[in-house]
């Protein structure tokens, strides 16, 4: 039984990865094509600015008076250099921009894996948000709301922070890194750091990659900013592991496309990461590199 499952899985992967190469793109048809902005440089604040300018500026995403929710990946008690969490400067850049656009409220609910006090401190994110009106917190029971996910294949309900459900503009700012369970953790996997522990656990039981795709049918960020300034190649997601320094920030309005490009930084075909493939097939976004327009900017 298990063997059959594995074989069919391999076949599927082979089909999707090799067919486009020979020019038959029928399988991927119907999926929208997408644009990914890749900014290379050292000055993180400027990189974010340059990337956003390409996407039409912050004004295209945040209007005055909007409730903004930002989802960084700040799960682990580790330092910015170790690459386990989103770089604090990226978080700060997004929060400052939202503030400058006149956002009414900026919330960063984060269901940390380590104890939140030390995690927020060691990650440098707490310090980076000092003086801003952003609220970084670990949601507890009262902050969650259970919602239906009609488009989910396995998961039909999820407990999601109210601030994420009720916001006007949702921004996903994950860090790209290795993940022992999900192969890679990029933007789509980042929502597992939002949902309740109960969901997080049961999804590992029920087919992790499908569940990752499922939650992305519900939570749809307006903007994805992936931190690939340094990427953890091994020992993820917690680290510390072996690091590489692409010095890149990846921006897109298509979460699957952003992940597909980010996967290449790890020398992986996007569809070798099962949840990218599933999400592409479900039409959540475009994971086919052939159909993704990559615009590079040097800062």
């Amino acid at each position: 039984m298990k063997d059959i499952k594995r074989r069919s899985f391999l076949k599927g992967t082979a089909a999707v990865t090799t067919l486009p190469a020979v020019g038959i793109t029928a399988l991927a048809e119907g999926a929208p094509s997408a644009t990914v902005i890749v900014v290379h440089g050292k000055d993180i604040a400027k990189m974010v600015e340059a990337g956003i300018a390409k996407l039409g500026g912050w004004g295209a995403f945040i209007k005055p008076g909007m409730k903004v929710a930002i989802k960084p990946n700040v799960a682990w008690n580790s330092t910015p250099e170790q690459g386990g969490n989103t770089h604090p400067e990226i978080v700060r850049a997004c929060v400052l921009a939202a503030q400058a656009q006149g956002a009414a409220k900026i919330d960063l609910p984060e269901n940390t894996c380590h104890d939140e006090k030390s995690t927020f401190a060691t990650s440098g994110v707490e310090a980076a948000l000092k003086g801003t009106k952003a609220r970084l917190y670990r949601p507890d029971k009262k902050d969650y709301q259970e919602v239906e996910m009609p488009n989910g294949k396995i998961v039909k309900r999820a407990e999601v922070p109210k601030d994420i459900l009720g916001c006007d503009c949702l921004i996903n700012i994950p860090v790209a890194k290795h993940h022992s369970g999900a192969t890679l953790t990029l933007s789509m996997k980042n929502w597992l750091g939002s949902v309740s522990n109960k969901d997080r656990r049961s999804w590992h039981r029920d087919g992790l990659h499908q569940c990752i795709a499922d939650i992305n049918t519900l939570i749809k960020p307006k903007l994805v900013v992936i931190d690939a300034t340094r990427i953890m190649l091994t020992k993820g997601p917690q680290g510390p592991g072996e690091l590489a320094h692409p010095d890149e920030i990846i921006l897109s309005t298509d979460t699957v496309a952003a992940d597909a490009y980010a996967a290449t930084l790890f020398k992986k075909e996007p569809f070798d990461v099962p949840h990218i493939k599933i999400a592409h097939e479900m039409g959540i976004g475009c994971g086919d590199l052939k159909k993704i327009k990559v615009e590079r900017i040097e800062v």
Binding site: K2, D3, K5, R6, F9, L10, C113, H179, S180, G181, A182, T183, R201, H204, R205, G207, L208, H209, K235, P237, Q238, P274
Partner: peptide, 26 residues
């Protein structure tokens, strides 16, 4: 069950969980 999981390794602060590949699953 051959599920992708490794949550134990994910959370282990001591890198004490080794992974063994079995039918493509760690």
């Amino acid at each position: 069950k051959g599920e992708y999981c490794m949550v134990c390794q994910e959370f282990c602060p001591y890198h004490a969980i080794e992974e063994v590949e079995r039918n493509g699953v760690m």
